[in-house]
Every structure is written in C-alpha cells, then in structure tokens.
C-alpha cells in the first residue's frame, strides 16, 4: 500500500473513531463502515483500528473472521449471498445456484475476473417462509427462481 493511501485510511478511521467512540464496543460499527467503503478491511486498516482503540490487531481479525459479512481480503464490488440452509434448499436453491453460476461463469466462493461480483453461500437469512432467498449487497431478494435470480444478477453487472 502506498504511504498516501495509508495516511488517508488512517484519517478515515480517526473520523470513524470520533463518530463511534473509543470503546471496545465501537469496533463493529467501525468495521462495518470500513467494509462498506472499501468492500474489505485490509490488514493495514485492521492494525490502525486496533492501535486507535488500544486493542490488539489479532482481536480485530478475530471479530472479522467471525462475521461472514466482514472480509479481510478483497472481494468483488458486489457480493451475492445465497441462502444454503435447509428450507431454502428444499425450496429450490440448487437450481437457482446453478443458473447464477452458469450466467456468471464462476462457482460459489469465487469472484468474476472483472472484480464485479463475488458469489457466496450464507446460512439462514430468516426468510424461510419465502425461500429461496439471497442478499445482494444490503438488499434481500426472496421467492427466487432461476430466471428471476439471473435478471437480478444482470442488473448489477
């Protein structure tokens, strides 16, 4: 990372700390904001958050690795998370999944070569009554079928 980028990141984090406070409990909102801004939390950002909150970098990493919606490595600009839990599975998740994979030419767990879309599985999203469900970035989509899923994907492409 360039020095300038680093300094900018530090400034950004300082602003977030002002916004949320220096307590340990501010960690998650701070990480969420960084995630939103950069689509991942770089190792440098993690260490800066740790320094400014006076905790250890490994504690920050531990939290990031715990939560599926926080990433420590770069991902595509859009993240598609399809529910893989049993109710959605019974409701036809498999067909939806293979339709999306065919459309994008990548498998779940991968990112498109142009870095636009990352495919991931998620666990139950609480939308079991209207499955199959998926989340694209912040938005939830439900009652999916292959066709509907593909058209949603094409909107963000």
């Amino acid at each position: 990372m360039l020095v300038m980028e680093k300094n900018q990141l530090t400034e950004e984090i300082e602003v977030l700390i002002k916004k949320y406070g220096k307590e340990r409990s501010s960690l998650i909102p701070i990480l969420q904001d960084i995630q939103k801004q950069h689509s991942y939390i770089s190792d440098y950002a993690q260490q800066e958050v740790a320094r400014l909150l006076d905790i250890h970098p490994v504690e920050v990493f531990s939290v990031i690795s715990f939560y599926a919606f926080l990433n420590s490595s770069p991902k595509g600009r859009n993240i598609v998370r399809l529910c893989q839990t049993i109710t959605c599975d019974l409701a036809g998740k498999k067909n939806v999944a293979s339709a999306i994979e065919r459309e994008l030419g990548i498998k779940f767990g991968q990112t498109t070569p142009d870095n636009k879309i990352t495919l991931e599985y998620a666990n139950c999203l609480g939308m079991c009554d209207v499955g199959p469900a998926m989340i694209v970035n912040d938005r939830v989509y439900y009652k999916l079928d292959p066709e509907k899923a593909v058209s949603i994907i094409n909107e963000i492409r």
Binding site: H56, F61, S62, F66
Partner: peptide, 24 residues
C-alpha cells in the same frame, strides 16, 4: 492478551472452524 499484553493469539473463524490463530 491480558497477562503479557502482546496480543498474538485469538480464536478465529466460527463454529466448527474455530481455532486459535495469529493476525491474518
């Protein structure tokens, strides 16, 4: 973390995948 304040080890990941590891 507490006794030595070095902070090398923590539990990372979740559920079945939880294990003790270092930063990144």
């Amino acid at each position: 973390i507490d006794l030595q304040e070095v902070g090398v080890l923590e539990a990372v990941h979740r559920g079945h995948d939880t294990h003790i590891n270092t930063f990144m």
